[in-house]
């Protein structure tokens, strides 16, 4: 449990660090992806119950004693879809910016703009 929390905190920090320091637009998009993965991981670890099975029952049901929490799983699906949508939108914008300036670096874009 603790190691996973550490991993989540590290992933989150890494993603944020990439966004804050890197100049390349694609890398910024990647940083956001890393942060999002950290959150999805958090969803999973919080829904985890030791020894629990997946929240999909058998037809005769009640065969399982312990089932992991289905709510975070449903929420994480929503979060994944939203994240994927925004990333796609971001990549489309990056393509447009690249077509205009022929560069992906924020510094050079600012220079070209004058």
């Amino acid at each position: 449990m603790e190691q996973t929390f550490l991993a989540i905190a590290v992933l989150f920090g890494l993603g944020l660090y990439i966004i804050l320091t890197h100049q390349n637009l694609i890398k910024i998009a990647m940083g956001i992806g890393v942060m999002e993965s950290a959150i999805i991981l958090l969803f999973i670890i919080l829904s985890y119950r030791p020894g629990g099975t997946a929240p999909i029952l058998d037809a005769d049901a009640q065969a399982y004693d312990l089932i992991v929490d289905p709510i975070p799983q449903a929420l994480s699906l929503t979060a994944i879809v939203i994240g994927a949508g925004t990333t796609a939108l971001m990549l489309a914008l990056i393509i447009k910016i690249y077509n205009r300036y022929n560069t992906l670096y924020i510094d050079e874009i600012k220079k070209l703009k004058g």
Binding site: I19, I32, M35, I82, T86, L89, M90, I94, I97, I109
Partner: peptide
């Protein structure tokens, strides 16, 4: 508009996170 949108998008995604 593209630059504005990109800036908005990065800030918006951070805030959403």
């Amino acid at each position: 508009s593209f630059e504005g949108a990109f800036k908005y998008l990065v800030m918006g995604m951070l805030s959403g996170t």
